[in-house]
């Protein structure tokens, strides 16, 4: 399957090319979104949004990077936007609840269980995802792309438009921060 040919066909409005693109990259887009937002419904919603944008703005893809890199960037942008919207909603609901309006109660989501994790590691993975959610944005993205999507440091640097050494540094700091967060978590649990 030639990536460039598919993109050119989609630029000409070929529906079959669009179906092939969706079928080929839907798991990658969904899994990335799921790793960031840690909610299956939201990830499905974001994945749909990503492919709608791909259909509508494929002409803006010039082929400077790999098609998958472009897809990763759209997915990350959409996922972060989604998170910000959700946080704004939560803050608004909290402020409303302060003024006595109980119609929107702030709900704390349960631990996230990624469906791709091996059964005997589910509990540890849930604790790790909870800790990943507390990392600064760049560290979280680098860690998620590397660990959840299995991208190499080189690929992560291309997606994040940075250097390999920056990714190495982000990963190093992410590990240190995760250790601190998990230490507090296990001490509190004890």
């Amino acid at each position: 399957m030639d990536e460039r040919l598919l993109v050119n066909q989609l630029k000409q409005g070929d529906e079959t090319a669009f179906k092939t693109i969706v079928d080929t990259w839907q798991d990658m887009v969904y899994n990335t979104a799921l790793g960031i937002v840690q909610n299956a419904e939201d990830a499905e919603d974001i994945a749909q949004e990503v492919f709608v944008q791909v259909y509508q703005s494929v002409n803006s893809f010039k082929g400077d990077s790999k098609f998958s890199t472009w897809l990763y960037r759209i997915t990350i942008t959409k996922s972060l936007d989604h998170e910000r919207r959700k946080k704004r909603k939560k803050r608004f609901a909290f402020v409303k609840s302060l003024f006595g309006d109980e119609s929107e109660v702030v709900v704390h989501p349960p631990d996230f269980n990624h469906p791709g994790v091996v059964m005997d590691k589910k509990e540890d993975a849930a604790a790790l995802f909870n800790a990943i959610g507390q990392l600064p944005e760049n560290q979280r993205l680098a860690f998620t792309l590397h660990k959840v999507e299995g991208l190499s440091y080189q690929e992560v640097s291309e997606v994040m438009r940075t250097t390999v050494s920056s990714v190495e540094s982000l990963m190093h700091r992410a590990r240190i921060n995760l250790k601190k967060i998990l230490e507090v978590y296990y001490k509190e649990k004890d």
Binding site: Q26, D27, M28, E44, Q48, G116, V118, D124, A125
Partner: peptide
């Protein structure tokens, strides 16, 4: 052990009929 819990994980897939 927790930090290594994501090693060897599979990709999650969306529900059928995604297209």
């Amino acid at each position: 052990r927790t930090l290594e819990s994501l090693d060897g994980m599979q990709r999650a897939t969306p529900q059928p009929w995604f297209f």
